[in-house]
């Protein structure tokens, strides 16, 4: 009986402690989000990056020169070692939205109002600025094929670059490559299979296109494999796929053997927390931040 009592007292004590801890943390949370006045620019920057091998990281490091190349053809990805790594666009956005002093980068199509996209070199990332090349961090979504397309693949290709196809690209949040495209009309009864291989970033828009196309041509099967830009280019080169998808620029030797067409443009937005008062960065600053040379906010 005695023991029972003491254990109950212990339980109650534990509960009280637990509740007290909860109370503390919640009051602190409201305290920090209600700091009045200016955002403290002397705070350290928390850099958030994507994982090695990601198409977004590849394009971002290349455009911002975080990926350093020397004369011998060696490439060094100088992304700051202390940068936290998230392996999805959502992960980067959640981290940035939850941490006032962090910075990350995501595809422009994914930007929403939980975070703030910065101006780069004074230019705000919008479809217009990417189309006229004034926004610096943009990458093409390329489609490639070798020699000649089969009849079915050619028809799908025509659909992608038709007015309907390009409209769907815009609806998915990307910037169309060609705004004077012709209207596609489903031709004779096609029957066959088209295989498409490549970048995971391009896959999402490609799936929408394929679905729409199959509604028009029910006898054509479109088979999409999503395994990365390089794999897509390899598959198109050795003929295992009809069309390859790549979310990066093609290398010179790849351009020699493949026919390339830009499906869409995608901007990469540099994002910060909404509390951050910084509005704009230069390309040098972006590079300095992501290589760990600039560690605190304050320009």
């Amino acid at each position: 009986m005695h023991i029972k009592k003491s254990s109950k007292v212990l339980m109650a004590l534990g509960m009280a402690l637990f509740l007290a801890a909860c109370g503390n943390s919640s009051s602190d949370a409201t305290g920090s989000s209600l700091t009045e006045g200016e955002f403290d620019l002397t705070q350290p920057i928390h850099v958030i990056s994507r994982e090695d091998g990601s198409g977004t990281r590849g394009a971002f490091t290349e455009i911002t020169k975080v990926l350093e190349k020397d004369a011998d053809g060696n490439e060094i990805d100088a992304t700051y070692m202390e940068a936290a790594i998230q392996n999805s666009t959502d992960g980067v956005m959640t981290s940035v939205a939850g941490d006032a002093t962090s910075i990350g980068y995501i595809s422009l199509g994914s930007v929403n109002d939980t975070i703030k996209a910065l101006k780069i070199e004074g230019v705000h990332p919008t479809p217009e600025t990417i189309k006229d090349n004034s926004y610096a961090i943009a990458r093409p979504f390329n489609l490639v094929y070798k020699d000649k397309l089969s009849k079915e693949a050619q028809d799908f290709w025509d659909f992608i670059f038709s007015q309907q196809g390009q409209e769907m690209v815009v609806k998915e949040g990307y910037i169309e490559a060609d705004d004077q495209a012709v209207i596609y009309t489903a031709s004779e009864n096609l029957d066959g299979k088209v295989s498409i291989v490549g970048s995971t970033s391009v896959t999402s828009v490609m799936e929408v296109l394929a679905e729409e196309y199959q509604a028009l041509n029910p006898n054509v099967t479109i088979d999409i494999t999503s395994n990365g830009s390089s794999a897509g280019i390899t598959a198109a080169t050795d003929g295992t796929a009809d069309i390859g998808m790549a979310s990066r620029e093609l290398k010179e030797e790849e351009k020699e053997v493949l026919t390339v067409s830009v499906l869409a443009m995608d901007g990469i937005a540099v994002i910060v927390n909404k509390e951050n008062t910084t509005d704009e960065l230069t390309m040098e600053q972006v590079k300095a931040i992501f290589t760990g040379e600039q560690l605190i906010w304050q320009e």
């Binding site: 994982e51 090695d52 091998g53 990601s54 198409g55 070692m81 202390e82 940068a83 936290a84 790594i85 998230q86 392996n87 995971t200 395994n227 990365g228 390089s230 794999a231």
Partner: peptide, 28 residues
């Protein structure tokens, strides 16, 4: 998930399992 040896407990860390799951989807 930083791929470097941490100096203290208050630094980020990458484990064997997370190394695989982070990069497998794009690795070739």
């Amino acid at each position: 998930n930083q791929p470097r040896i941490p100096d203290s407990l208050t630094q980020g860390v990458r484990t064997l399992t997370t190394n695989i799951v982070l990069e497998m989807s794009y690795a070739t």
